[in-house]
Amino acid sequence: MAAASTKRSSTLVIVSSILVITWIIVAAFPFLWTLWGSFKVQGDFFSKADWRNAIYGTRTLIETGGPFTGAGYEGAWIEKEFWRAAMNTGIIVFFTVIISLTLGTLGGYALARSGYRYAFWLLMLALVFRAMPHITLVSGYLVPFFEWNLWGYIPTSIIVLVAINQPFTLWMLHSFFLNIPKDLDESAMVDGCTRFQAFRHVIVPVMWPGVITTGLFSFLLAYNDFVVTALLLNQENQTMIPKIASFLGSTQVEGNVMFAVAAVISATAPLFVLILFFQRQIVSGLTAGAVKG
């Protein structure tokens, strides 16, 4: 659908522009609004008097003496120890991504190179596993984890997240490996490499684009997870998203909503940076699974 061949009518241009502009506003405005509001006091963010207070910061000026305040951030990060949650999230996400990719590249490579029927069935099984709501799995973990005293620890959550991540990782890397020509590793094996050596010396150097894209999605899954981390970690090891949810319980006190708002913005910032740098990979990743079936 290149532009050159299609002559456009002006109504169509107008309609499609309006549509796109509406969508951009709908997509971006909530984030901008909340970002702006996170530097205000609660009286402005939820303004009973006049909605414009949230823009000008009328109450903020009265209460703090300046048009902006970092009180929400200070309260969340220092008073409510959000830094600890951020650190836990960092650890969990890092190890989940690394382990997921290690297991996933090995498995995905095998699935892509095996012509047997069972490889197909394994992929189908992975699809079924992908569809399982995570909460149903978590309700299966709790009793054994309590019984074996595994509950509450960060490594447990990492392993669980890796496992939940596997079906998706396998599918994605499998379709990436299908794109790497078979001749490459087969010629290495003709030259006397074992299958693993061929994988190690021939495939590993050329697989990075696919691995990075898959890694991004593993990152998102681990970072955005709520169910596993909320139910499998104890208070001390809590990660950011459950922490935000726990803020909500204690938001009756004036000003505490702003802690949650600040925490929400803090948790969104890394994702924002992620899209900024990896937009191309994210888009190609979303479509890789689709276009190739």
Binding site: L106, S114, V138, Y141, V162, A163, I164
Partner: peptide, 29 residues
């Protein structure tokens, strides 16, 4: 790819899925 090689390549991944997706489903039942 011979069965044996396939098995070793897929083992870690399959084990993770077996232990933390298939078993929990049994455990839930």
């Amino acid at each position: 790819m011979p069965h044996r090689t396939f098995f070793w390549f897929i083992l870690p991944s399959a084990l993770a899925m077996l232990l933390f997706i298939a078993f929990p489903l049994v455990s839930v039942v």
